[in-house]
């Protein structure tokens, strides 16, 4: 769901060790990279390395059908052109539904396919979904190993709050990191009363730096990145001058990393 805000189509690259996704947004301003290691799944099997090209917008709609207690199983057969999702609730109390529909075509303008709902007090909750797979052109090269000049670690909820609040006031934000202060300031005030910098040094902030860094970014993207905040209690902002910002959320057995190209000049 976090990825679908940034990219509409992407390849899930599956191998024996993990599932990975890496894709740029349509504007080629941001890049999102996700990895979920095999141990992060209750059960994981990959007999053959294969890409699963998925319409993330559609996948997100399907995921909304799941409840928190549902266990989601993703399956793709060899040479298959569909991704099969099965939601199976262990609790009989929430088990009166059976959904089944086939889904073909990736035309975003086509309506969400109709589905059939059968109710029975005894049937386990069983949502059976097929999403057609597409062949995408994946970005197979990993992001080059980059040594960043600064790393700011802060609670992800604070980061979410900061970028959300600042997005109410302007379109861009400057992030400056010096030895003891990280300053996140808006650039485009709507009125003089709102023109004061919003120095943000919440509790739990750790600043590591080799060199002063000052970069300007589009707030819209940072707000979208911050939607991943529920995946991790902390977020890391890694920056060097004149290279993309890395916003990194690490979670058990995986991560989501978002890269954002800076504004040029000032």
């Amino acid at each position: 769901k976090s990825c679908s805000i940034l990219v509409t189509d992407a390849n899930f690259e599956c191998n024996e060790e993990n599932i990975m996704l890496q894709a740029m947004d349509n504007s080629h301003i941001a890049l999102v990279s996700v990895e979920i290691g095999a141990p992060g799944f209750t059960s994981y099997r990959c007999d053959r390395t294969m890409p699963l090209g998925v319409d993330l917008t559609s996948l997100t709609k399907v995921l909304r059908c799941a409840k928190d207690e549902n266990i989601c199983t993703l399956k793709a057969a060899d040479e298959a052109d569909v991704l099969n999702l099965v939601y199976d609730a262990k609790s009989a109390f929430f088990s009166p539904f059976f959904f089944a529909f086939m889904w073909h075509g990736r035309d975003a303008s086509s309506p969400f396919p109709p589905f059939f709902l059968l109710c029975s007090a005894l049937l386990p909750l069983f949502i059976h979904l097929n999403i057609s797979l597409s062949s995408q052109t994946p970005i197979t090269s990993s992001w080059p190993e980059t040594k960043y000049d600064t790393r700011v670690t802060l609670p992800s909820a604070e980061f979410t709050r900061i970028v959300r609040d600042l997005s109410q006031l302007g379109e861009h934000v400057r992030i400056e990191v010096s030895k003891e202060v990280v300053r996140i300031s808006k650039l485009k005030a709507k009125s003089s009363a709102e023109d004061e910098d919003n120095d943000s040094i919440p509790t739990g902030v750790v600043i590591e730096m080799n060199q002063h860094v000052s970069l300007t970014f589009s707030l819209k993207y940072l707000v979208n990145f911050s939607k991943s905040g529920s995946l991790s209690g902390e977020v890391q902002l890694l920056m060097s001058n004149d290279v993309p910002l890395l916003v990194a959320y690490d979670f058990t057995q995986g991560y989501i990393r978002c890269y954002l190209a800076p504004k040029i000049g000032d």
């Binding site: 740029m24 080629h28 301003i29 941001a30 890049l31 090269s141 990993s142 992001w143 080059p144 379109e171 861009h172 650039l187 485009k188 300007t216 589009s218 290279v243 993309p244 890269y259 954002l260 190209a261 800076p262 504004k263 040029i264 000049g265 000032d266």
Partner: peptide
């Protein structure tokens, strides 16, 4: 506003 750079311009061929 300052021009926006392109993320792909930071890629290096690997």
């Amino acid at each position: 506003p300052a021009p926006q750079s392109n993320i792909s311009s930071y890629f290096k061929s690997t």
